[in-house]
Write a protein that binds this DNA or RNA. Sequence first.
DNA 1: ATTAATGTTCAGAA
DNA 2: TTTCTGAACATTAA
Length: 296
Amino acid sequence: MPELPEVETMRRGILGAVGGKVVLVENIRCPKKPITILPSVVNIRRSIVGSTISAIERIGKRVVVVLQDKDNPSQAVNQRKLASKKYLIFEPRMTGLVLVANPPSAEHIRFRMKIGGGDVSEICFWDRRGLGSVQLLDHAKLQDKFGPGKIGADALSITTDNFFHQFHSSRREIKVALLDQKCVAGVGNIYASEMLHAAKINPQQKCSDLKRRQFNRLHHWMLSILNDAIEHEGSTLADGTYRNVLNRDGSYQNSHRVYDRESENCSSCNRSPVIRIVQSQRATFYCKRCQPLKSG
DNA sequence: ATTAATGTTCAGAA
DNA sequence: TTTCTGAACATTAA
């Protein structure tokens, strides 16, 4: 799916919807096997039409539209206000897109929401493979799914200390652990390979073999690469599935040093080809010379 | 016909 | 308790 930079690009793309009022909610088509929409579209429509969008947030690789319940105006006391908030979660998984216009094809539009009063007048969720989901949660359910202990700190805001703490004692391979959203939220398959290459760490190195210095380096490059990718509006791979909210390509794929560059000469050392291996059923790319596996 | 694809989650076993 | 494997979800393009 879109990873953190792609989802952050979606979030920023619909920020103009803040302050707008939801005026219409519908699912456009029902393919044989519809995507997960919970509760039903009818139910979601009943609870959010008339609500005001108070923020657009991101939890790991999910876009969160925060809604202020129409029945509980903002004058209410804080506690009540929190309880009255609703959270519409768009989870793109592998091929989902949050768009404000021009979907790649009419075929796979799954959900549409019209907004009155903001810059953005329509938000739609498009998903070719249909592994994604749209879910409306109240505050309690949100805490239940993403509260403390359920998901790691966000990759953009995790401290070096916490980052070290999450990994150092694990006996898993570092690339596998990086994809575990409970350790750190937002890192996916492309950027895991990229940041390990930048930090010159072998993807098969056990976490517990890595020194504090190496975790500091990895943390540094994680921030650097993710922020750079956000500036480039994410990576649009060869299959062209990921697009920004205006259905335009991202450009960070042009900056990939190892991902999907098997057998090309490593751009760092220029002496060794990029290798492709499989870890946890996912492709990993790295340079044997720049990222040697250290024993013990 | 086969394979792999930016993700998550679950069952079952070591 | 931790970690690993495999499968499932559904679609498409090489």
